[in-house]
Nucleic acid binder design. Structure first.
Lengths: 200, 200
DNA sequence: CCACTACTGGACGGCGTGGTACAGTTTGTG
DNA sequence: CACAAACTGTACCACGCCGTCCAGTAGTGG
């Protein structure tokens, strides 16, 4: 029965495995990456792996969770302090630029989510939690805009955040398939137009 | 060297394989479905398969193309004749209802696209073509609305269609991860609001 | 009817996979 | 410092995978 690490050394080992797995899963896909490859990249042996994980699926779930935490940490930096429309526009433009710079590999959460949903419940929940956190960041920014009077009082930050996130997510999906940033730009612009419609 | 079938019998065999592959890929994922499983489902042997396909990847591309054609055919029925806002609303509501009825397995094109992009160029192009066709259907409906005077002359059907498709696609991605239709509904409603903003 | 091509079915092989077993080494603790 | 628990490395196994091969069966044009 595998369990949580009980020593610092163990924790470091487990974490190294998860880190490498998250990287490889993101760039090659989960199904297309073998446990052996992950272990080789992490410089770990089978014994370590099955000491901490019950098997492949548990690793996938952990890696998805780790990836989401990374992404959310980055987004928190960009969105956490936003409280104006101009700030939101800038943050999203920066996000789109980063997406383009990495070669449009699809949404880091969305791609994993699509691969995992319906085949690994634990991982699906991790991805959903990632989306939730992202949406909360957007909702927080919108709420601050509303409180500062930039948005009308009747605006609903939660709904707007969902719609905005869907636009971003869908835009990335289209851009990934088309290998063309235009779709994401149009989608983000449309999402922002929605927000502007509620401006005071 | 595999090639196109030259007899009716051959064409039927090839098509049976592609059909079953499209079904299995859609419900289990491409990477998680073996060629042997597809062939067993199609009642075909290895000889037939390698007579028509160079290998796994070519089958994947063909199956993605087939799936897209199916989906687009269905959407053409729903959107082909739409020329009013009410009609568009109804078509999208019907689409959402269908999505819910099938258990929210993600967008039939989007899920495959995410799995295939970056690993199978031919299949990625097929998925992109599917998105293009879908977007054209939306753009056509919007253009008809504009010509009927329901949308202002300055409205840009192509841009609006991209934004609307992104909302739908992103909404499906969120709903799939969350197993909750609410996200898709909010996203679609927001997309429609964008369109209404251009109403005369 | 013949010869030639298209098509079919399945047996087979090499390989990579996820997972197990187990012996050896650290590490923390009393 | 003893000793148990945590941890690590690797050899190994059974299985399923993709793709090859080939012998046989339609089907078709001359």
């Amino acid at each position: 029965m595998p369990g949580e690490p009980k020593t610092g050394r163990g924790r470091a080992s487990r974490e190294r495995i998860v880190e490498r797995a998250a990287e490889l899963f993101a760039e090659r896909g989960i199904a297309a990456t073998s446990v052996d490859e992950v272990l080789a990249a992490a410089g770990a042996g089978k014994g370590q792996f099955y000491h901490y994980f019950s098997g492949r699926d548990e690793l996938a779930a952990a890696a998805v969770g780790y990836r989401c935490a990374q992404v959310i940490a980055g987004l928190t930096g960009a969105l956490g302090g936003v409280s104006s429309l101009a700030g939101l526009e800038q943050a999203l433009a920066g996000f789109a630029a980063g997406f383009e710079a990495t070669g449009m590999p699809g949404c880091p959460i969305g791609t994993l989510s699509a691969e995992v949903a319906g085949r690994n419940e634990e991982a699906r929940l991790a991805a959903a939690a990632g989306f939730d956190a992202w949406e909360r960041l957007l909702a927080g920014a919108l709420e601050r805009m509303r409180q500062r009077g930039e948005l009308r009082a009747e605006a609903e930050p939660a709904r707007l955040a969902t719609a905005l996130l869907a636009s971003i997510e869908g835009g990335m999906a289209l851009s990934q398939a088309r290998k063309d940033m235009a779709s994401l730009r149009v989608a983000v612009e449309a999402g922002l137009a929605q927000v502007r419609a509620w401006a005071s």
